[in-house]
Amino acid sequence: MQNSHSGVNQLGGVFVNGRPLPDSTRQKIVELAHSGARPCDISRILQVSNGCVSKILGRYYETGSIRPRAIGGSKPRVATPEVVSKIAQYKRECPSIFAWEIRDRLLSEGVCTNDNIPSVSSINRVLRNLASEKQQMGADGMYDKLRMLNGQTGSWGTRPGWYPGTSVPGQPTQDGCQQQEGGGENTNSISSNGEDSDEAQMRLQLKRKLQRNRTSFTQEQIEALEKEFERTHYPDVFARERLAAKIDLPEARIQVWFSNRRAKWRREEKLRNQRRQASNTPSHIPISSSFSTSVYQPIPQPTTPVSSFTSGSMLGRTDTALTNTYSALPPMPSFTMANNLPMQPPVPSQTSSYSCMLPTSPSVNGRSYDTYTPPHMQTHMNSQPMGTSGTTSTGLISPGVSVPVQVPGSEPDMSQYWPRLQ
């Protein structure tokens, strides 16, 4: 039975679970980093996980050691009161100082060594604690504590007292930064006198190289990059290397530039699409467009005044059976039934097929058609009795279509119309 579990990581490298990497692998990681390889490249070359490479390099940059820390136990506290007071002093002298600059000053002034120097995250935590204590304490208590930490007896009751030896409130920041720059020169002199001055200088240079600022491109470089971006948004590694040799930039910087440029292009394309949609959409909808001609068919113009009344309900007709019959029939052209047409008796099958359309009241044959006459024609229609054979009435077949029909004066039988409509 094995005491430890061995495995293979996602890159194909072998590791022992819970145990640190061998010293030979750690040394190779540092050597590759000094030669300029990126952590992701080191991870692929040595088949070590990216997190492990970053952790080893980060500890090497901070402490200069590649040895693993002790497994188990607690780390001794490195942010001692003396170190905290120095950090507060540096922050007062130059409020814009960075944590890694404070760390360098602690090393250069001999406050800490490589073994007990606090990390950048520890210094940031100390600065946050100082800021929170400043908010919790009152103004007087804060000034007393700062005077105690600074070891001075001057008056701290006013704002300019934060910067000793100065009279203009805006000047101390520059003086403090100048003092810090002077301390940086002392850093070089002190570290050069040490035993491991060369190694420390190499480590600091490598650290500065990794902690780079934003790349500033010249106009020629920007023009070359934009020209390549117009050709393709995704250049391959050969195109990037050719462009890197042409404009004297690292291939990694060119790759990052193209990634950022593609993101910018997507944002601009989104804005262009929004403007295009806004320009195509009308600002207001016309009133006429809300009524579609496919839904509402136009009603033909009436030929006679009587045809303006298109349904039985508008003429005072309360018989719903006839109203439904007229509205359900398709529109037909106007025609006239003459008196000489043969009077065919209704076929029983045809009569039964339209039995649902006729009223059940037996008085329908005896009703006159003056009910369908509009009010303004009552006088004219009353002067001509319906009993004469020459009287013409208008029957409504569908809305908007008038059918003048000659009705025999002897017997106005409704059943004569249905064979004609089939």
Rank of each mutant, 00 (worst) to 15 (best):
M137I: 11
N9H: 01
V83N: 14
Q2H: 06
E31F: 11
S6H: 07
T25Y: 07
G72I: 02
D115Q: 07
P95C: 15
S4D: 11
C112R: 12
D104Q: 12
R125I: 00
P95I: 12
S6V: 05
V126Q: 05
P20E: 00
Q10T: 09
G13V: 02
S74M: 01
K91A: 00
L11F: 12
L106C: 15
N3K: 07
P68D: 01
S6Y: 05
H34M: 07
A70H: 11
L130Q: 10
N17I: 00
N9T: 02
S96H: 12
A79S: 05
S65H: 11
V126D: 01
L21Y: 06
K28C: 09
L107R: 07
R105P: 02
D104I: 08
A33L: 06
L106E: 02
E82F: 09
D144G: 08
A37C: 07
P81A: 10
Q47S: 14
D104H: 13
P39K: 13
D41Y: 12
V16N: 09
I97T: 09
Q47W: 05
R128I: 04
I66H: 10
R147P: 07
R19P: 01
R147T: 08
L11E: 04
R38V: 03
V14K: 06
G141N: 10
R67L: 11
S54L: 15
P20T: 01
T113V: 10
N3I: 12
S4P: 09
P76F: 02
S24Y: 14
N150Y: 09
K145R: 08
K91N: 04
K86M: 11
Y143R: 09
G51V: 02
V53T: 04
G72R: 00
N114M: 11
A139K: 12
D140V: 12
V14A: 14
E82N: 08
K86F: 10
S122I: 00
I45S: 14
K91L: 01
I87R: 01
R125V: 03
N114G: 09
I102S: 10
D144E: 09
A79D: 00
N116C: 14
G138D: 08
C94R: 05
K86N: 11
Q2K: 05
C94D: 14
N129S: 12
C52D: 01
I71S: 05
R128V: 02
R67G: 14
T113K: 08
V8Y: 08
H5D: 13
L106K: 03
S65C: 15
V8G: 01
Y90G: 03
R38K: 11
V111S: 12
E62R: 07
G58I: 14
G36S: 07
S35Y: 11
K28E: 14
S74G: 00
G12M: 03
R147L: 09
E62T: 15
D41G: 06
E82P: 07
G18W: 01
V78P: 00
G51S: 04
H5Q: 14
I97V: 05
A88W: 00
Q135T: 11
N3G: 09
V8I: 10
Y61L: 14
K134R: 12
E101H: 13
N9A: 01
G72P: 00
Q135A: 10
M137T: 12
N17H: 00
